[in-house]
Nucleic acid binder design. Structure first.
Lengths: 299, 299
DNA sequence: CTTCCAACTTTGTCCAGGACAAACAGTGCG
DNA sequence: CGCACTGTTTGTCCTGGACAAAGTTGGAAG
């Protein structure tokens, strides 16, 4: 029996909803309805946390909380599957990886990943192995099948593998030089790293700024002429409206000679209304875009 | 002239003080005293942000806010220097690195770092180059000499260099197997990576769990017998009391055969009251400890 | 003179309830 | 069918207060 005592602070970190939102929902919808400890502080149950995780993900997909809070776990999972976001068991090695993570068999895990990397090459490794694996591991966490510690362990290993592969491929300042980052508030390092791997793999030079770069800084950097392309990535947790607004603001501030490339599930389906913004639906499409950029540069 | 408009949300992210704390201070001490925009929301000035950064760091060193809020920037900087925490210009290459960061000359930066790594070897590279460089860059940010974007860029490059070096050195499961992480709330990835580099460099196997591992998970993991040593790192931002309490709790939960190693500026000066906890004052002392562990294992 | 305990002060986190603009979902008109 | 307008939903910020945990101080006891 696990003890169902989670403070509002722990829930905020775990689920990713702020304390203000958690309290507002409780008042407005009656969910969650945590108990209270001896100080009158909220105490959330395991079930509430799992439901909140599911609801959070559905909201990130564009749904609204009002209609979700009444549903139970099974219904929420059904909704998620119907969205096609999660394609269960699409990833053949996911089960093996999850087992290695649970048993903390790190050397074996790293060996497995490195072998796959060697066999498939960096590009296909990222597209066909890492991408579906990320989805599978994220879903395992959502279900409560693995702990946060295990997800951290996973992230660490993937980072190590990708970063060393990137370091090995990186030449000496080949063009185009691509500035790679996200808008402020955005925080999904792994997605950025995957894009960087794809780009480096095709001979580009990446200047990765990490996550949460202030927008003002980006504009200022553009004037330095230190890069040829600005690439941005948005996770699904990022509100689309803010992404679009930020994009347009950036577009007007940057010189027209610098194209903006955008990707990530937070922006999929968006049709740019301005010239000079390209949206990528998947990792594959980066490669032809790079080739096109190069030939355009020569013509 | 920079526009001095920062929302409370931006300040929270930049400085690392929660909205609740910022409002409490304003009411209690009269500092900060932000203006208000047309909606009545707080608007902080650049100077307030810089002072708040300095105050935050002093608090992390163990001081208390009441006596700090009345001081101006010069006085706060003096306090920081008198604490000896910041040894200015101890790092000869810091100025060069800062310039490369500002100009976004990433390939040169990476070349510089890699050359130093080759010349010094991983161990001395971490001790003599990265460690003082981190301090210098942190101080540059504190002073407002570099932007957050540049600090991100720095972190990215260091991560890449260290992670590839680690990946290269990692053999196939040599002992001891060391579980490396921090307690929850702790979030300084670079420090962990430096420790990992030192350990791997001496032939140990690291199971790096990343930051913010829930304490409950750590206890559970101990029973799996998947590692020989538990290593924890605390940054100075972590309240010492919670570190000590967490340590003792962990010590009672883990089998006595697994030593706990602790380091980081957040715990320096602590004398363990229980057997089976070792505190490291600096990165050097890890190496003899490893050798001692090995010889103990053989005897 | 040091050690230890109790009372007091400081400080961060949580709580309640309210205001409000931005985002979203319709609805009717051209 | 597209577009402007209106109503509802929703997240963030606000004020002001309660309280325990952490830190400090003063005095009694060794």
């Amino acid at each position: 029996m696990t003890k169902p005592s989670h403070s509002i602070d722990a829930v905020e970190r775990d689920v990713g909803l702020t304390k203000d939102v958690l309290r507002k929902w409780e008042r407005r919808y009656g969910f969650p309805s945590p108990g209270r400890d001896c100080h009158g502080d909220r105490v959330y149950s395991d079930d509430e946390i799992l439901r909140l995780r599911l609801i959070k993900r559905l909201i990130d997909q564009g749904r609204r909380p009002g209609a979700l809070v009444a549903l139970d776990r099974a219904q929420l999972e059904q909704l998620l599957e119907s969205a096609g976001d999660v394609a269960p068991s699409q990833c053949p090695i996911a089960a093996d990886v999850a087992r290695l993570l649970r048993d903390r068999r790190v050397p074996e895990l790293r060996t497995t990943l490195n072998q796959l990397l060697l066999r498939q090459g960096l590009r296909h490794f990222v597209q066909d192995t890492i991408a579906p694996l990320n989805v599978a591991i994220g879903e395992a966490w959502l279900r409560g099948d693995i702990e946060i510690a295990e997800e951290h362990l996973y992230t660490e290993q993937i980072q190590t593998v990708l970063r060393s592969a990137i370091a090995m491929q990186t030449g000496a300042g080949a063009s185009p030089r691509i500035l790679l980052t996200t808008l402020p508030d955005e925080l999904h390092a792994l997605g950025l790293l995957m894009v960087e791997a794809m780009l480096v793999c095709e001979g580009a030079t990446c200047i990765a700024l990490g996550t949460q770069t202030p927008a003002a800084d980006l504009g200022a950097i553009g004037e330095g002429n230190a890069f040829d392309v600005l690439a941005l990535s948005f996770s699904s947790a990022f509100p689309r409206r803010r992404a679009v607004d930020g994009l347009i603001a950036l577009r007007t501030r940057l010189p027209a000679s610098i194209p903006i490339w955008v990707g990530g599930s937070g922006i999929s389906g968006y049709r740019p209304t301005v010239d000079g913004i390209t949206v990528f639906r998947n990792l594959d499409s980066i490669v032809p875009a790079l080739q096109q950029w190069r030939s355009r540069g020569l013509s």
